[in-house]
């Protein structure tokens, strides 16, 4: 398609695929390093051999039961959060429109905290997170609906919901006993510690179903919708149907990611920005954002495990520091460039 090549260099689509592939490769390298580390160190080649089924029984157990679930969780949570973040940012046409700022994450947190305070187990906690996120999503959607869904209303209602839910969550924390409150705080920070296959399975299924729907079916109409509702309808996009599908998918992915790893901060906000800077392509850049998110969270978890010898950090601390730092750097760079 020479028309698209006029700008010079790679076509935007090829560039997006290259960025996606590069990030995925990076995520895999991080993953192999993460699986290889710990009390029983393994070389990268041993890790790959064991994953492919050629390890000793001990290695098999360590890799498949102890370490791989955590890496796969990081990979999927990062990808799901980034995809949801890119969708939200595009839907509300606001680069800050991530699920952390629109109330969906707080909804998941409220559901999870409710379970913790009432003394539920970890499976119930995950269920609470999903239910809280989905219910919050439905309420925000209903409140923001006015003969159709509009970005700015979603932002306003979402900010209101965030404020209310933050208050509710604070109250729930004070209601819990000390042990429960400590467990809740760890969950709220976002952690991948001790994740097993049963934690990751729901998210895996959701990603297997929703990622193709969103990436293949919705990316192009979503890019068109960014140019304005009327124009998109004129081009034959069913705008409201598209928004409903995308919002539903993004809320589900956010909730399931929170259920698997807690409300890991800043990945949903940062990954799409990073992806856009790398692809330099207009539009929501969903595929590149998804892969960037996977690399970001596997990398952050690797750092969380290795940064301080003998002392693991919750991954949410790393993503918070990295994401916040990136945002500040971005603002400073834009200021220098005279854009803000």
């Amino acid at each position: 398609m020479p028309v698209r090549r006029i700008a010079g260099g790679m076509t935007p689509r090829l560039r997006a695929v290259a960025v996606g592939a590069g990030c995925l490769l990076l995520a895999l390298v991080f993953g192999v390093l993460a699986v290889g580390g710990g009390d029983y160190p393994m070389s990268p080649s041993d890790v790959v051999r064991t994953v492919l089924g050629g390890g000793s029984p001990a290695e098999d157990f360590i890799v498949h039961e102890l370490r791989l679930p955590r890496v796969v969780t990081a990979l999927l949570v990062g990808a799901a959060l980034a995809l949801a973040g890119a969708v939200f940012q595009s839907l509300v046409r606001n680069p800050l429109g991530s699920p952390d700022l629109l109330g969906f994450t707080q909804g998941s947190a409220a559901g999870a905290l409710l379970v913790v305070v009432t003394g539920g187990g970890s499976a119930a906690l995950a269920g609470g997170a999903v239910l809280g996120g989905v219910v919050t999503g439905a309420v925000i959607y209903a409140l923001a609906w006015r003969g159709g869904l509009h970005g700015h209303r979603l932002v306003l209602v979402g900010i209101g919901a965030t404020a209310i839910l933050t208050g509710v969550n604070g109250y729930l924390l004070t209601r819990g006993r000390l042990m429960e409150a400590a467990r809740a705080m760890l969950w709220l920070t976002g952690s991948l510690d001790g994740r097993g296959w049963e934690d990751v399975l729901p998210l895996l299924v959701a990603m297997a179903v929703l990622a193709p729907v969103v990436l293949l079916g919705c990316a192009r109409p979503l890019a068109i919708t960014e140019m304005g509702d009327d124009l998109a309808r004129g081009l034959g996009v069913r705008v409201q149907g598209l928004r409903l599908v995308l919002l539903g998918a993004a809320v589900l992915l956010t909730s399931l990611a929170a259920a698997a790893a807690g409300p890991v901060s800043f990945v949903a906000l940062t990954a799409p920005h990073l992806a856009r800077r790398m692809t330099r392509a207009p539009g929501p850049n969903l595929l590149a954002a998804t892969c960037t998110g996977a690399a970001l969270l596997t990398g952050a978890d690797l750092a969380a495990q290795r940064l301080f010898a003998g002392h693991q950090l919750p991954v949410g601390v790393v993503t918070g520091v990295l994401g916040g730092g990136y945002l500040v750097w971005l603002l400073a760079a834009q200021r220098k460039a005279g854009r803000i």
Binding site: V3, I6, M227, L231, G234, G236, A281
Partner: peptide, 22 residues
């Protein structure tokens, strides 16, 4: 052609016109 439309950031003329083929 609506009264107000938003050109996405960083889009080229050829790409924007190409979106009419949707």
């Amino acid at each position: 052609l609506p009264q107000t439309s938003v050109a996405p950031d960083g889009i080229t003329v050829a790409e924007l016109v190409g979106r009419g083929r949707y």
